[in-house]
Design a protein around this nucleic acid. Sequence first.
DNA 1: CGTTGGCCCTGATCGC
DNA 2: TGCGATCAGGGCCAAC
Length: 300
Amino acid sequence: MPELPEVEVVRLGLEPVIAGALIEQVVVKDPRSLKRHLGPTEDFISSLEGHTLTHAVRRGKFLWFPIAGTNEALVGHLGMSGQMLIGDETSDFGPHARIIVTLKPVRGLRMQVAFVDQRIFGSLAIDHCVDCPDGKPGGLGSPTAEVPKSVAHIGRDPLDPHCDDRAVIAALRRKSTGIKRALLDQNLISGVGNIYADEALFASKLHYDTPCSSLSVSKVRELLRTIREVFGRALAEGGTSFDQQYVNVNGQSGYFSRSLKAYGRAGEPCVVCGAIIVRERFMNRSSYRCPRCQKVPSTR
DNA sequence: CGTTGGCCCTGATCGC
DNA sequence: TGCGATCAGGGCCAAC
């Protein structure tokens, strides 16, 4: 279940391999992984073969790789179970390998990048780029103020140095919905998924259905800070891993899941107060919270 | 326009 | 043993 820290780990792992890499061959083993690609599979392939990728860029959970000399980029989203694995000519990426990109040999070594995705919620696509309205870099790792059109509506994420905290806090407080729903909405602030939403709300002692409009500026600022803390910790540990769904680019699992304090801990004692963590259905997802630290909001 | 609910997709697991 | 139901959930889109 890759969220922002996991996707950043993937970006960091891919960058040295794909930056400046000339693409020799693209094999689409399962066109369902191109469902967000507008146009035929052949166009996807011809947009890449013989072309060079310049950078590895990320905004929220979206990754993209600008194509040299064009206005286009290879855009990827890992969805629920996506992975980008790096290997060589001899690598077997398994039964869920959907798209294989082979790079021209460098110093005699022919590398491959595989898009592996069991559930096919993720996708790859070719998209054209548009200018960022704020004139700032499109995402982490981008030297230009451009972003793929299909990613333009996604808000900057908390690890983006150009994230406008004041604007985010003000916009969040104007929303007439609960705080967790607002966090999961990628348009305002991106990169927060179900797991880290629960972790951040636990750290900030907030119930998931607390009305955004009832939160003070300082409370929202605190929440933003806890999101960054949780992200930073996960990033330092290489990302969270669950049931081997997520693996970083080298095929190794992250291990942040061991330090989760709320998510997945139903029936276990709260590490702060000892009350038993409960699991509740919210937005067709599981939400975990401490019934004592994160009380149901009184005002609604 | 903002908010909300449902759908997509596969494989592991569970109950009968 | 077999088989249908359930669960996992990010992003998108239609409906309100």
